[in-house]
Every structure is written in structure tokens, then in C-alpha cells.
């Protein structure tokens, strides 16, 4: 590996479509950036905006939320709720100076392994270009300094 910056992306993949799309990408041996670290949730609607913040706070450079296409959610319309929360969250993130590319939402059905892989590659590229997030500096800044305490073991 060269010395280029390798972002870490936390992925929230819904069990029924996008997690299976990622499975399919693997089964089909589609090679894509190893930067995505997926977490399985039953539905993208389970993704609490706090999950995204926790990931960013803990060193992730980006977060990818993936669900079924609108109309195809296993739970009728969980993904629509995801979309609403996502838009709201993006507004907040923007105010903190967090670039758009860092938190992305996409729809991938179980058969769209290639598409998912392409999107991960693209996002990885975008984040490489942006560089590390450095949440503490960017969001908390000096004001947040005291908030950062060492966790009691």
C-alpha cells in the first residue's frame, strides 16, 4: 500500500437488501475498496442519527447508510423514514462543517452487488480527497476540549 490516506467508513446495511447486496458482491468476487466496515441492521429505519454521530466521533471518516429501494423496504416504508432523518441529519452536519460526502445514503437491492461496490469505491475516493475527518478538532474545537475526557476503564 502506498502512503495515501485510507478513510474508514462505517456502513449500516439493512438485512434484506443492502446487506445481501454486499454478500452478493463478495460471492461474485467483485473487488472493491476494503474501507467499508459494515454493521447489519434489520432495516435502514433502525439507523438512529446517533449511530452516525457515534461513528464519526469514534474515528470514522464517513458513514454509509444503505437500504432497500423506496417501495421495497421489507418493512413497508422504513427507508422513507431513514430518508427523512438523513436529510435532517445532513443539515445539522453541514452546520458543523462536515462535508456532504462524509455521510451518504444509498438504495441497493439484493441483486445490486456491483452497484454497491461501485458506490463504496466512489465514496472511498471522495473521502481520500477530503482527508481525515478529525471530529474533535472540527466539531468540538477548543470549546469541546473539556468534553474529551479519558474513559474510565
Amino acid at each position: 500500500m502506498t502512503d495515501q490516506f485510507e478513510p474508514v467508513i462505517v456502513g449500516f446495511l439493512c438485512n434484506w437488501c443492502s446487506y445481501r447486496a454486499a454478500d452478493l458482491a463478495g460471492t461474485a468476487r467483485i473487488k472493491y475498496a476494503p474501507n467499508l466496515r459494515p454493521i447489519r441492521v434489520m432495516c435502514s429505519g433502525r439507523v438512529d442519527p446517533q449511530f452516525v454521530l457515534t461513528a464519526l466521533l469514534n474515528g470514522a471518516d464517513g458513514v454509509l447508510i444503505a437500504g432497500c429501494h423506496p417501495g421495497e423496504c421489507h418493512y413497508v416504508n422504513g427507508n422513507i423514514k431513514t430518508l427523512r432523518r438523513f436529510l435532517l441529519l445532513k443539515k445539522t452536519l453541514k452546520q458543523w462543517g462536515i462535508e456532504d460526502e462524509r455521510v451518504q445514503l444509498l438504495w441497493a437491492s439484493a441483486s445490486e452487488g456491483i452497484f454497491l461496490a461501485e458506490r463504496v469505491n466512489k465514496m472511498t475516493e471522495e473521502l481520500r480527497a477530503l482527508g481525515p475527518l478529525r471530529w474533535h478538532e472540527k466539531v468540538l474545537g477548543m470549546n469541546g476540549a473539556e468534553l474529551v475526557t479519558v474513559k474510565e476503564a
Partner: peptide, 14 residues
């Protein structure tokens, strides 16, 4: 999942 990239040991916001 992020064990290797945590810069500090913050109290997570959530």
C-alpha cells in the same frame, strides 16, 4: 469496529 482509529478516548456523544 473503530478500535484502531479512535484518536482519543472520548465520551461518545450518544
Amino acid at each position: 469496529l473503530l478500535w484502531d482509529v479512535q484518536e482519543l478516548e472520548p465520551v461518545p456523544a450518544g
